[in-house]
């Protein structure tokens, strides 16, 4: 049995099954983060002061608690990784497999870099007794960035598979492999976009 339109697009929709699938998945992800962001807005508008007092201090802006330089660095890292994964795909389009491997490798390295910075940030919060239970601000900060970090980890798993064992497919079915990298890229760009919104709303406003 062969399932149609896994490699070639269906003529009347113009897309492959996996492209439909990934965009539907991203639609549900938009709703997930939409729900989280609206919870954030709901809690913030309902709070008498924001971020308020925690661990014995009064804060008037988020940037006094959170490290804007680190978050800005992470923004740059994620944008760069978004660029490299699209370059990885473009390399496959140009039939340059070794360059694909290089770009995919850089993408994964950058993702680990992001998590490293994130871990460093979390650790410095915990050191100062700034736990999620301290205030609603910290709670929503940890939930939003934590769920985003889980998505980053998911991306690392998928991308590593396509760099390692999954890349064997390039020899047997290059077109489907290229499609897969495109799909993985779409997911990764979405993770990037979420961070583009998270950064100003949590750290800067």
């Amino acid at each position: 049995m062969e399932i149609p339109y896994t490699v070639q697009p269906r003529p009347d929709t113009g897309v492959t099954n996996s492209k439909v699938g990934i965009w539907l998945f991203l639609a549900s992800e938009i709703m997930l983060f939409g729900g989280l962001f609206s919870a954030y807005v709901f809690l913030r508008l309902g709070a008498p002061e924001w971020p308020g007092s925690m661990a014995g201090h009064d804060y008037t802006s988020a940037s006094e608690i959170l490290s804007v330089p680190l978050a800005a660095l992470n923004t740059v890292i994620l944008i760069a990784s978004s660029m490299t994964i699209v370059m990885a795909w473009a390399s496959l389009m140009l039939k340059n497999f070794s360059r694909y491997k290089m770009y995919m490798g850089i993408t994964i390295a950058l993702s680990f870099g992001f998590l490293l910075v994130k871990g460093f940030e979390y650790a410095s919060k915990f050191e100062h007794g700034l736990f999620p239970s301290e205030s609603t601000f910290l709670g929503i900060y940890f939930v939003l960035t934590g769920i985003h970090a889980v998505h980053v980890i998911g991306g690392i798993v998928v991308n590593s598979y396509f760099l390692g064992p999954g890349s064997k497919m390039w020899k047997t079915n290059p077109q489907q492999f290229t499609n897969r990298i495109e799909i993985a890229g779409l997911y990764w760009h979405f993770v990037d976009i979420v961070w583009i919104f998270l950064f100003p709303t949590i750290y800067l406003l």
Binding site: F131, L138, F142, V143, I147
Partner: peptide, 25 residues
């Protein structure tokens, strides 16, 4: 199912944080 369930997933995570980590969402 696709578009209505994710907000409950978000809510479930928030409630898990309330119960396990001690937040007050």
């Amino acid at each position: 199912l696709l578009l209505a369930f994710p907000p409950l997933e978000a809510a479930s995570v928030l409630q898990l944080f309330d119960r396990l980590v001690g937040t007050s969402f």
